[in-house]
Amino acid sequence: MIHFFGDLSTKVFAVVSSQKLSSEHIDKLSWLFGNKPLLNSASIDAFFVGPRAAMITPWSTNATEITQNMGITGISRIEEFTPVSENYTGFD
Score class of each variant (00 low, 15 high):
E65Q: 15
S30Y: 11
R77P: 03
G34K: 09
I26D: 03
E79M: 06
M1E: 11
G74L: 11
I78V: 08
T61K: 12
F81Y: 15
K36N: 14
S85I: 05
S17T: 14
M1V: 04
I75M: 09
S76Y: 06
I2H: 11
I56E: 14
T67I: 01
D45N: 12
I66T: 08
G71R: 11
L29I: 14
E65I: 05
I75D: 08
Q68V: 03
D45Q: 13
T82N: 10
L21Y: 04
M1F: 00
P83M: 03
I78K: 00
Y88G: 06
H25W: 08
N87I: 00
L8F: 01
F47S: 15
S43D: 13
T89C: 02
D7W: 00
S22H: 09
G74F: 08
V12E: 01
L8Q: 12
V49M: 14
E65F: 12
D45T: 09
I56F: 00
D45F: 06
L32H: 08
L38H: 12
A14Q: 15
S9D: 14
P51C: 10
A54Y: 07
T73L: 08
V15W: 05
I78L: 07
A63W: 03
Q19W: 00
L39H: 04
T67E: 06
S9T: 15
M1Y: 03
I72E: 07
S30Q: 13
P51Q: 13
L8D: 05
T10W: 00
F91Y: 14
V16I: 00
T61S: 08
S43H: 05
P51V: 01
I56D: 12
E65V: 00
K11A: 05
F33N: 10
N40F: 05
S30L: 05
V15Q: 09
S9E: 15
V49T: 14
H3W: 07
F5C: 02
A14D: 06
W31G: 07
T64N: 09
W59C: 03
N69M: 10
G71C: 10
M1C: 00
S41K: 15
A53G: 10
K36R: 12
V49S: 08
S17E: 09
F13H: 14
F13L: 04
S30M: 07
F48H: 14
G90V: 00
F4C: 03
D92P: 12
D27C: 03
G71K: 07
T82Q: 08
M1R: 06
Q19N: 13
V15G: 09
F4H: 10
N35I: 00
I26M: 10
P58V: 03
N35M: 07
E86T: 06
F47W: 13
V12I: 14
T89E: 12
F91W: 07
T89R: 09
D45L: 11
R77W: 03
P83I: 02
K28P: 01
T82D: 01
S18A: 05
M55E: 11
H3P: 00
I2T: 06
G6N: 07
D7M: 03
N62D: 07
T82C: 05
E80F: 01
F5Q: 01
S43A: 11
F4A: 03
G6K: 06
M70E: 10
F5V: 02
E79H: 05
L38I: 09
M70N: 04
F47D: 14
D92R: 03
Y88D: 11
G71Q: 10
A46V: 01
